[in-house]
C-alpha cells in the first residue's frame, strides 16, 4: 500500500529525471485527490442543508438529486491516478506473492501495460461520450443541469491515470532490465505480514514511523 520512494541511492545510479517527473506528477495527483475529498465534504454539507431545509423551513435544496449526481463524477474519478500510485486498487496477490526478481517485474509490467491499453481506449470512448453531450446537448431530468462538465471529468481523470501508468511501465521496465536495482515509484507487492504492518501503520498514523508517502 505504499510507494518506495528512496533517496538513499547514489546519484549516478538514480534515474533523476524519472524521479523528478514522478514528484511533479504526484503533486498533480494529490491535488486531484484533494478535490475529490472536498467534493465529498461538500456533498455531505449539502445533504445536511437539504434535510434541515426540508424539515425546519420547508425549503429543500432544488434539484438536490441532479446536483449530487453531477458532482459524483468528481469523487468517483478525480482520485483514480492517486489510488493507482499508492496501489489502492484491489487485486489478488496469491500468485504474484510467490514470485520474485525478474519474473515478478515482468508480470507486474505486463499487468500495467494491459491496464494502460484499457485506459487509453476508454479515454477515447469516454471522450466521445462527452463530445455528444457537448455538441448535441444533454441535461439532467429535474433542474436541467448540463451533463457535459461531469462527462468531461472522466477522460481528464483517466488521462492523468494513463500518465501514471506509463511512468509505472518505465519503473518496472528498468527493474526487468536489472532486477538488482532499487524499485522507484512503483507499488511493491507485500506478504500478509507486511500488509498487516501497513494496516497498522495506517491505523496509528503519526504515532508510529511514517510509512511512505500517503
Amino acid at each position: 500500500m505504499m510507494t518506495i520512494d528512496s533517496d538513499a541511492r547514489s546519484g549516478s545510479e538514480r534515474p533523476v529525471t524519472y524521479i523528478r517527473f514522478d514528484g511533479w506528477l504526484s503533486h498533480v495527483e494529490n491535488a486531484f485527490n484533494l478535490i475529490a475529498a472536498f467534493s465529498i465534504l461538500t456533498l455531505m454539507l449539502l445533504a445536511v442543508a437539504q434535510v434541515i431545509g426540508r424539515l425546519l423551513f420547508n425549503m429543500p435544496v432544488p434539484g438536490f438529486i441532479d446536483i449530487t449526481e453531477q458532482a459524483m463524477a468528481i469523487f468517483a474519478f478525480a482520485g483514480v491516478a492517486y489510488c493507482q500510485r499508492v496501489g489502492g486498487h484491489i487485486r489478488m496477490e496469491i500468485v504474484l506473492g510467490r514470485l520474485s526478481g525478474r519474473t515478478l517485474y515482468v508480470c507486474e509490467m505486463v499487468g500495467v501495460i494491459l491496464i494502460a491499453f484499457t485506459v487509453a481506449l476508454l479515454i477515447w470512448g469516454s471522450w466521445y461520450h462527452f463530445d455528444r453531450s457537448w455538441t448535441i446537448g444533454d441535461s439532467t431530468m429535474d433542474i436541467r443541469l448540463p451533463t457535459w462538465p461531469s462527462k468531461l471529468v472522466i477522460p481528464v481523470a483517466l488521462s492523468l491515470l494513463l500518465v501514471r501508468l506509463i511512468m509505472q511501465i518505465y519503473g518496472y521496465a528498468r527493474l526487468v532490465a536489472d532486477p538488482s536495482r532499487e524499485p522507484v515509484a512503483v507499488p511493491m507487492i507485500e506478504g500478509v505480514e507486511e500488509h498487516a504492518k501497513h494496516e497498522i501503520d495506517e491505523a496509528f498514523g503519526d504515532e508510529t514511523a511514517e510509512g511512505g508517502t500517503r
Binding site: I40, L41, L43, M44, A47, I65, T68, E69, Q70, M72, A73, F75, A76, F77, L121, L122, W124, G125, S126, W127, Y128, H129, S150, K151, I154, L158
Partner: peptide
C-alpha cells in the same frame, strides 16, 4: 465497442443511489 464502453464509466458512476457510499466511508 469503444463508444459503448466509453459510456459506462460516467453512466454507471453518476447514479444517485451510489452517493451514499462516500458518506458512510467518511
Amino acid at each position: 465497442a469503444l463508444k459503448m464502453a466509453g459510456t459506462i464509466p460516467h453512466s454507471k458512476s453518476v447514479t444517485y443511489s451510489l452517493s451514499v457510499l462516500p458518506t458512510f466511508i467518511l
